[in-house]
């Protein structure tokens, strides 16, 4: 099985959770600039965990500024 496209997964989950499209999201996008508040972000994290079948520990969730920060943490947790 190939590596999942985490950016695509993020966009999918975020649009499902916040009921709006995120067409121009890149790894450089700042999460708060996207209008995603802290509770919504945790909702997205929970949904991505279910989607990818992983657990993202709390220490990975500090200092998340960009979408890429989250993707990098998740990549490190994905089975090799």
């Amino acid at each position: 099985m190939g590596k999942p496209d985490l950016l695509a997964t993020f966009k999918l989950v975020a649009s499902r959770v916040d009921h709006k499209e995120f067409p121009n999201v890149s790894r450089e996008s700042v999460i708060t600039d996207l209008g995603i508040d802290s509770l919504s972000m945790m909702q997205i994290v929970g949904e991505m965990e279910s989607e990818l079948g992983i657990m993202i520990p709390d220490e990975d969730l500090v200092e998340l500024v960009t979408v890429g920060d989250l993707c990098k943490k998740i990549e490190a947790r994905l089975p090799a």
Partner: peptide, 13 residues
């Protein structure tokens, strides 16, 4: 169905 980590952070409010 999915475990407690799937519970919405908006559950309480």
């Amino acid at each position: 169905a999915r475990g407690p980590r799937a519970v919405s952070p908006f559950f309480i409010p």
